[in-house]
Structure formats: structure tokens, C-alpha cells
Design a protein around this nucleic acid. Sequence first.
DNA 1: CGCGTTCTCTGACTCAGGTCAGATATCCTC
DNA 2: GAGGATATCTGACCTGAGTCAGAGAACGCG
Lengths: 309, 309
Amino acid sequence: MHADAIDRIRDFNRFYTQRLGLLSDRYLGLDRPLGHSRLLWEIGDRAAVRDLREHLGLDSGYLSRLLRALEQQGLIRVVPHPDDARGRVAELTGAGRRERAALDERSRDGVAALVAGLDPEQRAELVEAQERVRRLLRLASITIGPVPARDPAAWRCLRRYATELAGRFPEGYDEATLTTPEELDGTLLLAREQDRPAGCGAWVRLSPGVAEIRHLWVAGEARGLGLGRLLLRGLEADAAAHGVTTVRLGTHRVLTEALALYRAAGYHEIDGYGSSPYNQMCFEKRVQAVAGSAAGAGDSSDTRRLSAR
Amino acid sequence: MHADAIDRIRDFNRFYTQRLGLLSDRYLGLDRPLGHSRLLWEIGDRAAVRDLREHLGLDSGYLSRLLRALEQQGLIRVVPHPDDARGRVAELTGAGRRERAALDERSRDGVAALVAGLDPEQRAELVEAQERVRRLLRLASITIGPVPARDPAAWRCLRRYATELAGRFPEGYDEATLTTPEELDGTLLLAREQDRPAGCGAWVRLSPGVAEIRHLWVAGEARGLGLGRLLLRGLEADAAAHGVTTVRLGTHRVLTEALALYRAAGYHEIDGYGSSPYNQMCFEKRVQAVAGSAAGAGDSSDTRRLSAR
DNA sequence: CGCGTTCTCTGACTCAGGTCAGATATCCTC
DNA sequence: GAGGATATCTGACCTGAGTCAGAGAACGCG
């Protein structure tokens, strides 16, 4: 890996933490320990103690004490959980809400002061560059790997996929069209972002050397990162590694972003091969098991990605 | 200010601190408290205790204890300061150097792991976007304001300016050409980044309504941020606020970046007016005291900037 | 109902990080 | 050389943040 890039990223990290440090002092502003503020924020309007513990990763004893402190300051009320008398629920009082708003305001002011010297155009540029950084780091944190044909998380994705298509296709979408685990002669890939499913896709063998890519889907919250392309490459590389030389796929005319993806990935349109009534347009591409094809098939980093899980 | 931009920046800050949090756990890796690591890093090869205290902003008692701890671990040696027996100097031992290298390596590995999922092109994009964020935030943190004609920091800038021109002009540069404090019928602006001088510039009245901009200079470490443009705007706005309607300036042919700046800022070339032997090319621009001219003269944010100091 | 599990609370403890008030030695200026 | 300033060290103290081992109440499954 390019050492230079790493060092520049580290440089940026140092720079940014220093800048954020200036902020967080301000953040603390209301003289309250950081833990209290964070908790106040995390409670939202009300939250079960159990959820807070899990979310913030705190020791139950510690959390208990924190809650007591906030309660004594009159910022929250802790009442028994209505459904489970073992558990408890913390909720903000009026004072707590005001306090949270003040905290929010302060953080906002800090940021505003930090960018006060920029004109609106530059601020927009800043936001855009930050968004790009975020998109890239999110993409980098996503892991893609093969899962068993019945993997529950993958099937949650597939059902979300079906629901979405049902909403987008004028004729609706019949969930029975989904490839069953029995039919899956190939690989089911699942993408995860911090342990949350972010997308999926599968390839199934149609005949020796020929596979079809199906059910390529990216969760709404992970769109715009380039994950579709990554999944597609992953499927191609995995299929190629299993002896496939030609991949096909079909899609519906209304899925314009999918069409654009396939075209950009080097697919060319072919006649329909009748695998699904929803496949109004069909595409094909030749793939190679070894990296380096001009068409941009999976490179070594994709392969590593796949073997990593 | 656009609330939306602020919120998006806050969002990014939250996201980024979370990512950095993942890193710093790793950073701590060698089980050593954070303070020790930071100090080890800050010492470099050797550093005066006094400088460390100032740099890290630590209490002298606390620092003393930290140093002792590192010394007991055999990572540093603390010896009397050669020039001032009151002070002391900390220097890394061989073990300390190895430890620092290990720390460095670990941080580097952490970053590498974070971006491992990106291909080289995406990594380059990440670095570039980060650099843009950094440039903009640096620019935002720079304050520009008028200083007395004899301000020592401004004069350090002017001397650096003269030294630089002496190196760039084929015929050299005579420092006596610099406008003296007595001649300064106008304003001297100084730009500071975190209390360090980052650039300067002045305007002087040539005749009623006409001013000349002189000695516009940006320190090497602050170039590429857009500070030159900001200083230029600041000078124009300040001159306009003092009844100037026409600003002139001259420059040397070899200063191509200056020429580009003036042209982009709406200056048009005029005949020489003989203010300095080095002014091979001369420019002029009309300015207005009120914001909003199509030529892009100072807007309200510049004015605020100026009045802020 | 009984028994293991889950959830919260309490008390005792640890550690990092830091402040504060002198004590002491050296330096600098008059 | 006196007196104030500067640099460091030491001891006493504090707070935030967190861990750990139980206690006790409530749940839920057989």
C-alpha cells in the first residue's frame, strides 16, 4: 500500500482531531462531565436502560450511577419499564430537554464559529469534500463475503429487495420469483457495514461456464457509495473463480440506475434468455479468473475482500 | 448561516470521531496510557522539558511525573539543560526510539486497515478530499486584521517577503524598497493562523481616491489555501471603506501566480505609474465601499473579518 | 412451582489525568 | 550580591471513567 497516502491520511487525522479538540472543549462548556452529556444525548426523549447500556457499551454499574447523577440534577426521570418490571426506562424531564437543547446549540455554535470565515461557496465545498471523505470511508469499512444459502441476514436483504421491486415495478413483483436456497447453484454474497446488512447479490450456474447474476441489491442507507459496483465485481470474481466465463443478467426497464451500472461495468445487451418475467433487458459479459482484464473485472483487492470473511 | 451546512458538518464530525475512536484503541495497543505515548511522540529525539510543557499545555507537576514514569521504564533520559541549569532536557534512549517506532507502526497499520478496502484510485480520491477539507478549515481559521505600521510580526513577514523576492527576481531585490512605516498612509493587514503570521499586505494612498496595494505576501506554509485572494479582498474592502475608489498595483513578470491572482480578481492592466523599479506590469481596479459589486470586491464576511480583530 | 436467566443496583476498588501549593535551585538584572 | 523571576520537583488532593463481585427483584420456560 502507498505509504505516502497512509501518512497523508494520518496527517489529516492529527489535524482533524486537533480541530475537534478545540470544539469539544467548547462542547463541555456547560460544566458537566462528558459522560453525562453523552448520555443525555443518547437518551433522546426516552430510552430503556438496557438499550443505553448496549448502545454506549457501558458497564451496568457505571450506567446506573450516571443515571442517578442525572436524576439528582433533575434532568431525567427513571421509571420502571412498562413491559418488563426488571428493566427501567429513562426519560428526559423538561429541564433535561432544555439542557440537551443548550448542549446542541453550543455544539452548533462551535461549528459555526469554526467555519465563520468561509463564504457560502466555500462552505458548500467543505461539506461536499467531507461527504466524499465519509462516502469513501464508509465504503472502505464494508465487508463483502459469501454466506450460506439460508443465511437469515441475507434473506432479510432479499425480502427488502422484493418489497422494493414490488413498489417500483408497475406490474408489482412476486416474491416467489426469488431464487430459493435449493436453486442456488452458485454463491450468495452479503455486504455488511459494521455488522449491519448493507446489500446482497447472488450468482447461479445456468450451464457449464455460464452464470446468471441475480438479486443485486444495495440497502437505501448504503446507496451512493459505489457498493453496487463492488458487489457486482465480487460476484464476477467469485463466479470466475468457480469456472464461469460468461455472466448474464437481466433487469427491468424502470431500474435505470441498475442499467447504468451494468453498462459502466462492461456489460453489453443481448437477447432475452427468459429467466424471469421481469427481465425486460438482458446483458452479458465475459469474465476471467485472473486479475487485469481490460473490462475491469475483479482485481486482487476484491479477491482479498472475498477471502477475508 | 446555513443551518443545513452546520448540521452536515456536525454529522461528519461525529462520524469521523467515531472512526478515529476505532483507531485510537488500536493506537493504545501497547498497553501504555495515552499520555505516555503522546509524550513519547512529542519528545521527538530530545526536547527541553519547558518546551514540552508549553507544547502539550501540561501542568509542570504532572509533566514531571510523566517524565519520571517514562524514565523508569527506560524509554527516556532526563538530563540538565546544557545552557540553563534550571531547565532539563528529555531525550529518547534506544529503547525509547524503538518504542516510538512501534507506536508509529501501529498507528500506520491502523490507518492502512481502515482504507484497505479501497482501490488505489479511491485512496487517492480520499486523500484529495481530505486535503480539501483541511485547506478549507485552515483558511477558515485564519484571521486577518489591521496592525500598526511598526508591528513586529508584520515586519517579520515583510522581511521574509523581501528575502523571497531577492531570490526570485533575476536582478535581486533591494530591501530598502519596502514601504517604511512613515510612508504608510493606509493600512497594513496581517494574516495569522493560530497566532502564527501567515501573510501580509498593505495599501497606501497615492492621491485622493487612489491607492496602491503593496507587499501582498503569503507565507509558504499557507499557500494554496486561497489566502492571497482573501488578503487582496481585505485590502480592497479596507481601502474602499477609507474613501478609495481606485486601487492600483504593480508586480514583476516572474511572479506568475500573482499575475493570475490579480487577473482573476478583476484587475486590468494599465500603463506603468512608476512606483517601483520592480513593477514591470501594473494593474488597476475600481472598488466600492458597499458589498455586491460584480467584480467580486469584499463582501460582508470580509468586513466582519476585518472588524473582528 | 422451581430454577436458571435477565436486569438493575450497590459497594469497593482501580487508574489516568490533572490541579495546587509550596520547596529548591538557578538565572538575570540592578 | 540582593531580590525577583524562572524551571522543575514533590506531596497532597481531586475528579472522571470505569471494572468487578455480588445482591435482589422480576421474568419465563419446563
